[in-house]
Lab assay of single mutants.
Amino acid sequence: TTVHIGNVTYHFDNPEEAVKWAKEMAEKLGLRIEIHGDTIRVE
Rank of each mutant, 00 (worst) to 15 (best):
T2M: 09
H36A: 10
N7Y: 09
E24H: 12
G6D: 07
M25D: 00
H4I: 15
I5F: 09
V19Q: 08
G6A: 07
V8T: 11
I5C: 07
H4F: 11
W21I: 02
T39G: 05
Y10T: 04
M25I: 13
L29S: 06
E17Q: 10
R32Y: 11
G37T: 04
R41N: 07
D13Q: 10
T9F: 09
A26P: 00
K28L: 14
I35R: 04
A18R: 00
L29Q: 06
D13Y: 07
G6N: 11
N14T: 11
D13L: 10
A18I: 02
T9P: 05
N14W: 05
I35Q: 05
T1V: 14
I33N: 01
V8W: 13
E24I: 11
H36F: 13
A26N: 02
T1W: 13
E16Y: 11
H4R: 11
A22F: 03
E43L: 15
E43K: 14
V3Y: 00
Y10A: 04
T39E: 11
E34V: 15
T2V: 12
A18L: 04
K23P: 00
V3A: 01
V42S: 03
T9H: 10
G6L: 12
W21E: 00
V3M: 01
V42F: 07
D38A: 12
A26G: 05
A18Y: 02
G6V: 04
L31P: 01
V3H: 01
L31G: 15
I5L: 10
E17A: 12
I33L: 12
A26T: 03
E24K: 13
I40S: 02
D38P: 07
D13G: 06
M25Y: 08
T1L: 08
E16H: 10
D38V: 07
K23A: 07
M25W: 08
I35L: 06
D38N: 15
A26R: 02
I35T: 04
W21S: 01
D38C: 05
V19R: 09
R41M: 12
D13F: 07
E34P: 01
T2F: 08
H11I: 10
I35S: 03
T39F: 09
R32K: 15
H4C: 13
E24N: 08
I35W: 09
K23E: 10
E24G: 07
M25A: 05
I33P: 02
V8E: 12
V42G: 03
A22I: 04
K28Q: 11
T9G: 05
G37Y: 05
T39D: 07
F12L: 01
G37F: 05
R41H: 14
H11F: 14
G6Q: 06
H36R: 13
G30S: 03
I35V: 10
G6M: 09
P15W: 15
T1H: 06
M25S: 02
R41F: 15
R32S: 15
K20E: 09
E24Y: 15
N14Y: 05
D38G: 10
G30W: 03
T2I: 11
D13W: 08
T9M: 12
I35C: 08
H11E: 06
V42H: 02
E24T: 10
L31N: 04
V8F: 14
T1G: 05
I5A: 03
E43F: 15
V42N: 02
R32T: 15
I35A: 04
T1N: 04
A18D: 00
T2E: 06
L29H: 15
H36L: 13
H11W: 14
K23F: 09
H4K: 11
E16N: 09
V8G: 07
H11T: 09
R41L: 13
T1R: 06
E17W: 09
Y10S: 03
V3P: 00
T1Y: 12
F12N: 00
V42E: 02
F12P: 00
V3L: 03
F12Y: 03
V19G: 04
T9N: 06
H36I: 14
H11P: 04
L31V: 12
E27Y: 06
D38R: 12
H11Q: 07
F12Q: 00
L31H: 10
E27R: 08
H36P: 01
F12W: 03
T9Y: 10
V19P: 00
A26C: 06
M25F: 07
D38Q: 12
V42W: 02
I40M: 03
I5R: 01
R32Q: 15
K28T: 07
M25H: 03
N14L: 07
E16G: 07
A18T: 01
V8I: 13
M25R: 03
I40R: 01
